[in-house]
Design a protein around this nucleic acid. Structure first.
Length: 446
RNA sequence: GGAGAGGUGGCCGAGUGGCCGAAGGCAGCAGUUUGCUAAACUGCCGUAGGGGGAAACUUCUACCGAGGGUUCAAAUCCCUCCCUCUCCGCCA
């Protein structure tokens, strides 16, 4: 049995990951089982338990034998130095060596099975997360602003955009296919203005360091943040190389510190990154087929944070607030909801979604998702921290990782078109964006 | 794509089969000393897992890019892969 996630073509996941992950379930398998039951899902607990037992037994045997081998080999060296015959000892050690190989073979099989299984177990929800089975059980946390007062029936963003000549879906379909869009003229510039506005606000007002990462990443990175092994069908992958197009900047940016030990004084570390995002959208046939809401490629400014465990929930509130600040600056009405256990993503311990008001649909649509992953990604990625001074007794611990969209740029553009539409079909540009638009105040038909 | 050189602890850098978890140096930490931030000296100073101990600590195992192999014994020998650097080609 081969495990592609430990494939030697790429850096395998660190030993740290494997050991920790195997250990936790053993210590409190039942507690974890209980917590996990709240999010539904299926974990083969008996098989897990058996594998853990097997691993423990085999590891003990292997260590004992290796110890004997080491002693014996040292004995051989000593005998040879004293010009005595070591043949008997060498023969005995050869037997032990063979036993070790056998046991290590079994151990490898058990560890691969265990690793693969562990990688497919979702994160435990935080105690403050409401229990529920789907989006209907999410809880509204707060609302900001109010819907715009439109004097005419609200047009959809694709009608507005196509009428204004700034959105072109037909040509996008010709060049690429369904679920792609072309922005032109003031539309392209508005998208770029939004990216700049968001990055500028986060880097100058909110304390984030800007990052421009690769958009293609390897399998190990995808596994570390939790997209793999379970969700490969959601990703675009190159056929000739084992590279994946990132579905979010969370992947490259979180992996920035993979297999590193950060100094405690450096925390929290905050990054803001603009990247395009690529998603297969498998299984979403028929949903949001028109417009910019659900595309195979879209732009996003992502916020990523690494925090000490005792500060990560404070950080989640702060990060969510930073995403909200963008919407407030743009004057867009939104609500924040706390996702219930059944609606949360695989890797998250707690998630807030920010949903912006879309007049044409008379509903709130997700524009940001802010999550605390606690140690889930950090364990998979081997991201730890330690006191800078390296004082005695200072334990290296896993950091908590967080991230959130700040914001999804395409959907923000949608919200602006729809919320700022005028009776004549033009669109007013929010104040804060005007200097990024060369002073333009309104998008009119060209 | 072609040719070559390399990957050792936070960093630099020794180490071509056993006495090597790894010399030495730098940085860091603790302390001593000199009437000041500078210097000298001494000690400590990787990660993970298991056992023992209240703890300081101790003991076992693994790790010298990754994986496999040879051997009683591998940082050291062999194979595969990944990565980095230099030169040529190509290209933004």
């Amino acid at each position: 049995m081969t495990n592609p996630y430990l494939d030697a073509r790429f850096q395998p996941l660190s030993g740290t990951f494997i050991m920790y992950y195997l250990r936790t379930p053993r210590d409190n398998l039942d507690a974890i089982r209980g917590q996990l039951a709240r999010r539904g899902g299926d974990v083969p607990w008996d098989r897990l338990r058996t594998l853990i037992e097997q691993r423990r037994t085999l590891t003990g045997q292997a260590e004992q034998l290796r110890h004997e081998l080491k002693q014996g080999s040292d004995g051989v060296a000593k005998l040879k130095r004293e010009k005595q015959s070591a043949d008997a000892c060498m023969a005995a050690m050869k037997v032990i060596g063979e036993q070790i190989k056998m046991i290590e073979g079994e151990l490898r099989n058990v560890e691969e099975a265990l690793t693969d299984l562990n990688l497919r177990i979702p994160n435990l929800p935080h105690s403050s997360v409401p229990i529920g089975k789907d989006a209907g059980d999410n809880q509204e946390a707060r609302r900001w602003g109010s819907p715009p007062l439109l004097t005419t029936p609200a047009k959809s963003h694709w009608e507005l955009g196509e009428d204004l000549g700034i959105l072109d879906f037909d040509r996008a379909a010709k060049i690429s296919g369904a679920r792609f869009a072309v922005l032109t003229g003031a539309g392209a510039r508005l998208e770029r203005a939004l990216i700049n506005y968001m990055l500028d606000l986060h880097t100058t007002q909110h304390g984030y360091r800007e990052v421009l990462p690769p958009f293609l990443v390897n399998r190990t990175s995808m596994t570390a943040t939790g997209q793999l092994p379970k969700f490969e069908e959601d990703l675009f992958r190159l056929s000739d190389e084992d590279y994946f197009l990132i579905p979010t900047a969370e992947v490259p940016v979180t992996n920035l510190h993979r297999d590193e030990i950060l100094s405690e004084s450096a925390l929290p570390i905050r990054y803001a990154a603009y990247t395009p995002c690529f998603r297969r959208e498998a299984g979403s046939y028929g949903k949001d087929t028109r417009g910019l809401i659900r595309l195979h490629q879209f732009n996003k400014v992502e916020l990523v944070a690494f925090a000490k465990p005792d500060q990560s929930y404070e950080e989640l509130e702060r990060l969510t607030g930073h995403a909200e600040a963008i919407l407030q600056g743009l004057g867009l009405h939104y609500q924040v909801v706390t996702l219930c256990t059944g609606d949360m993503g695989f890797s998250a311990a707690k998630t807030y979604d920010i949903e912006v008001w879309l007049p044409s649909q008379s509903q709130y649509r997700e524009i940001s998702s802010c999550s605390n992953f606690e140690g889930f990604q950090a364990r998979r990625a081997g991201i730890r921290y330690k006191d800078a001074a390296g004082k005695k007794g200072q334990k290296t611990e896993f950091v908590h990782t967080l991230n959130g969209s700040g914001l999804a740029v395409g959907r923000t553009l949608v919200a602006i078109l729809e919320n700022y539409q005028q009776p004549d079909g033009s669109v007013t540009i929010p104040e804060v964006l005007r200097h990024y638009m060369g002073g333009m105040e309104r998008i009119k038909k060209e």
